[in-house]
């Protein structure tokens, strides 16, 4: 019998949106849902979470305040075993990708990464080769570990009003220690949540291009800002802004790509966007193949004009 265990992600004390889409994905397979939330500062998030699961387990331990893969995997695997979980889920975020393979190894379970579709209780579709190919995988082990591509599922609706129980589970010895976190400060919406994303590439010539061209438009549209790998590598913008196969996956209602060529690795992270606009001087640029609307023009002229006319 199917029993789901959903691992919640908490960021700055708040429940991460990817947890809600993960709950949405799990609900495609019939079975009771238990949620697990960890860390001593997760009180508030735990009360939100209990509205989405019949049972929410809160491991209120300061040993789990820093999200380190080794202690997290131990606690998750122990709860999964105690609860008799058959499906253990997490969003395919940096944290989920870091932690869940360890959980799978600990439970001697197979794992489907970054799924975009649930076919049945053991079969899933997932992107491979930077999304050029979609693979259908069957996880045959009794326990299945799954990470979920947040952009591909609707958020769960909530309203469950389940029970919240605190559990005491030893985080164990760890060879890992948290040192520091250097946060990218931004007042803009997070890339994964924004309704509009404006991404820039090497065509913006330098960090000033982002400041002068992209930022004013992002301000006006309350958009998040993304970037190609090339400009993250060059240090023009934070690494955290990279969209693509090996960066963030986004699917906003509107994605505006400015001065980026549209390499397959970039497209892998944004082609699910509802409406894609490309602005590029080169009419042959591959980005035009995925764009709904293309403007062949110099970004330094076109974007200010767009800002003015919107």
């Amino acid at each position: 019998m199917t029993k789901h265990l959903i691992i919640a992600e908490v960021q700055d004390g708040k429940l991460h949106n990817s947890t809600l889409t993960t709950l949405g994905a799990a609900s495609k397979i019939e079975g009771p849902i238990t949620a697990l939330i960890m860390g001593a500062s997760s009180n508030e998030a735990a009360t939100v979470l209990k509205d989405y699961a019949a049972k929410t387990i809160f491991v209120n331990s300061s040993a789990l305040n820093d999200r380190l893969a080794q202690p997290y995997a131990k606690v998750i695997a122990e709860v999964a075993t105690q609860e008799g979980a058959t499906h253990v889920w997490h969003g395919a975020t940096v944290a989920g990708k870091d932690i869940m393979p360890r959980v799978a190894a600990r439970l001697d379970a197979g794992m489907a990464s970054d799924i975009q579709e649930v076919i049945d209780g053991s079969t899933f579709k997932r992107p491979m080769w930077a999304g050029n190919i979609i693979g259908t995988v069957e996880v045959t082990s009794p326990i299945k570990v799954i990470t979920v591509r947040p952009t591909e599922f609707d958020k769960a609706v909530g309203g469950v009003g389940g029970e919240l129980v605190e559990a005491n589970i030893d985080a164990g010895d760890s060879s890992m220690r948290f040192v520091s976190f250097d946060a990218v400060k931004s007042d803009r919406p997070a890339l994964g949540d924004a309704r509009v994303v404006i991404s820039g590439g090497r065509g913006l010539k330098g960090p000033e291009g982002f400041k002068e061209i992209v930022e004013p438009l992002a301000d006006k549209l309350s958009a998040a800002i993304g970037a190609s790998r090339a400009v993250c590598d060059a240090g023009w913008v934070p690494n955290d802004w990279q969209v693509g196969q090996t960066g963030k996956v986004v699917a906003p209602e509107l994605y505006i790509a400015v001065g980026l060529s549209g390499a397959i690795q970039h497209v892998a992270g944004m082609k699910g966007s509802k409406c894609i606009v490309a602005i590029n001087t080169d009419e042959e640029a591959p980005i035009f193949q995925v764009a709904d609307y293309g403007i062949v023009a110099d970004a330094f002229k076109a974007v200010p004009e767009l800002l003015e006319k919107i």
């Binding site: 379970a109 979609i134 259908t136 045959t140 995925v290 403007i295 023009a297």
Partner: peptide
């Protein structure tokens, strides 16, 4: 534990439009 059942190419996206100017966009 993880068995490949099949591979497919994602559906091709309908061709977009190149627009003459920002006003049209």
């Amino acid at each position: 534990y993880v068995v490949m059942k099949g591979l497919e190419e994602p559906p091709a996206k309908a061709a977009g439009q190149i627009l003459p100017d920002i006003a049209t966009l």
